[in-house]
Amino acid sequence: MIMGLFNDWVVVVLMMIGLYIIIAHGNLIKKIVGLTIFQTSVFIFYISMAKIDGGTAPILVDGVTQYSNPLPHVLILTAIVVGIATTAVALALIVRIKEAYGTIEEEEIQEQDSQHKDSHKLNIHNSSEINRDKKEC
């Protein structure tokens, strides 16, 4: 039983670590790294379930009858792509947050937001606005 479920338990541990980083750490980039660990642990879970004793990679070769299950592989290929897509968008957001707030620490951002929660003045951050400011200078 220990060997049979070892992979699943490691997956759970990795998942817990990833989730912990996402929730407990305040640095936005670190959160994204945590997200990557979290997602990768799910990939490991799927791939482990596709494994079959005495099987080989699912590429048809003469003389082999036992192949591991190709379907989870396909799903995880898709999921990896989804993962990188999310990471890219998240990183783009981080760059913009750094520009707008001057920091990428969760606490400092929330502090800045709560300071002028009631001011209705917009906190402009668009690049075009920056360009306009520059022209005025």
Partner: peptide, 20 residues
């Protein structure tokens, strides 16, 4: 337009990705 949109989007991204 507001810079808080960025922060809101980031939070949504984290929650949404955990959900997904």
């Amino acid at each position: 337009k507001d810079r808080r949109a960025l922060w809101a989007a980031y939070q949504y991204l984290i929650m949404g990705t955990i959900g997904a």
